[in-house]
């Protein structure tokens, strides 16, 4: 079946549109921050630090999981072109994670690095979150075409770290839930589905390869 319209996904304007979509929450939040600086409490309420950390954190995990979803959808619906947007998606996930951490470091900790180290060593949910952030750095750096060529097969191996990061992010979120398990259930289900799709895909590939090998020549 021909899918003429999908070819639009591969064009430059499509990339710009995708980038812009991911930038919208960031731009809205930055606008809130700008207004807050002149009129405290106007947009983010009386406790803006908490709100910023929370919103950047929420967008981080959403976009991170979306990055993994892109590959799944491209396989399930046979739209390989989609994968071209995975890098933008991943880089935005990284951006939001960095902003999430920056908001925590500035608005919550007031750049108190001793408390930061204390939090890191004493509080497992912070440790999980920070390890996830640190692991994202090499992925962001090596996301370019040049690095991909240079690393060859190792690039794929390196970028499998995203699965560990996704799990760490989930633990980081889940450990902070208090009165409900809603987010744990929602993000946990998504994570499970993402893994199931990959396992099923890998098994099918293996069966296909085995069939190909045993087929009479």
């Amino acid at each position: 079946m021909a899918r003429p319209r999908l070819s639009f996904l591969a064009t430059k304007p499509a990339k710009w549109i995708v980038g812009l979509l991911f930038a919208i929450p960031l731009l809205l939040l930055l606008n809130d921050v700008r207004i807050e600086l002149f009129d405290p409490g106007a947009r983010l309420g009386p406790n803006p630090g908490d709100v910023l950390v929370d919103r950047f954190g929420t967008w981080s995990i959403r976009i991170l999981y979306l990055t993994l979803l892109v590959s799944s959808i491209s396989r399930l619906f046979k739209i390989p072109i989609l994968v071209q947007h995975r890098r933008t998606c991943g880089l935005f996930a990284f951006t939001y994670v960095v902003l999430h951490f920056t908001a925590y470091l500035s608005a919550i900790l007031g750049f108190d690095f001793n408390t930061l180290l204390g939090d890191f060593s004493k509080r497992p949910y912070i440790m999980f979150g920070m390890i996830a952030l640190l692991l994202l750095i090499p992925l962001a750096i090596t996301s370019t075409r040049g690095w991909r060529k240079r690393l060859k097969l190792n690039w794929k191996r390196l970028h499998r770290l995203i699965y560990l990061i996704a799990v760490l992010a989930f633990i980081h979120l889940s450990m902070q839930e208090r009165s409900t398990y809603t987010d744990t259930v929602i993000y946990g289900s998504i994570l499970v589905l993402l893994f199931v799709e990959r396992i099923v895909y890998a098994l099918r590939q293996r069966v296909a390869r085995a069939n190909a090998a045993s087929a009479p020549s």
Binding site: E36, P40, N47, G49, D50, A107
Partner: peptide, 12 residues
């Protein structure tokens, strides 16, 4: 503690 309302970059 953060004494509310607290500006984004105000100290606790």
């Amino acid at each position: 503690e953060r004494r509310l309302p607290q500006g984004i970059f105000a100290r606790s």
